[in-house]
Amino acid sequence: MSNESFFLDEEEIPFAEGQTIIQAALSAGKYIPHLCYHPEFKPHGSCKLCTVRIDSRTITTEDGQTVKIPGRAAASCTTPAQAGQHVESETDELRDLRRTLVQMLLVEGNHYCPSCEKSGKCMLQGLAYDLGVMDPHFPQYFSKREVDASHADILLDFNRCILCELCVRASAEMDKKNVFSLSGRGNTKHLICNSESGMLGDTNLAATDKAANVCPVGVILHKRHGFEVPYGQRRFDKAPISDNAVQYAPVKEQV
């Protein structure tokens, strides 16, 4: 660890050369909300939940008033940490922004938590709790999405996909199988499987693959394993997502 540091909400955070803001913050035990960032993968920068402001300034105008000039907004998972910079994360503006982003994800997909196997350990849900999201606010898309049960061990419920691409990255980078990819664009963007039929059962995914175990929400599910932990004892029943931030610290040297 080098002796360089920056400031996150006025707290000094040390960082190593090449670390991004979120990597340094999490290593130092400071939580910054995130969904597409994962400790084992290169940062991706798509969900934008980790957005922070960098180097806001306060100036005094000619008539003696102090005005805050907001710094630039950036995804902290892809922005390299720089010595001396001042980063804001826990501000009203950014909390509100993150709530809006969570609400966008909640209306884009079909999230019926009471019937979701991931409930209680779902990152989207856990983050929504932590941000105090009480409602989805925007009109629901009620988009019609598929369920793919063709694989012997794994079920895909696309209703809940937040397009974080973690499964795509895991399959390409760790499993070296490229089972998942994306197609479409804009509001038609969607996950596809690597087979001519488009079915998961026709790919070489194994239940032990990283890609089968990385989905932060309830899309990639293991058959015959649902609702195994009782209500009240699940991951985010016991502790909020923001607890113990070092659990999200990068686990190996990032490229």
Binding site: L49, M104, P139, G186, N187, K189
Partner: peptide, 21 residues
Amino acid sequence: FVDESCGFCTPCRVGTTLLKN
């Protein structure tokens, strides 16, 4: 913008459609 968003990031992928609505 709805037609042309690439869909990579949440604010634009969802936000353009919500604004259109």
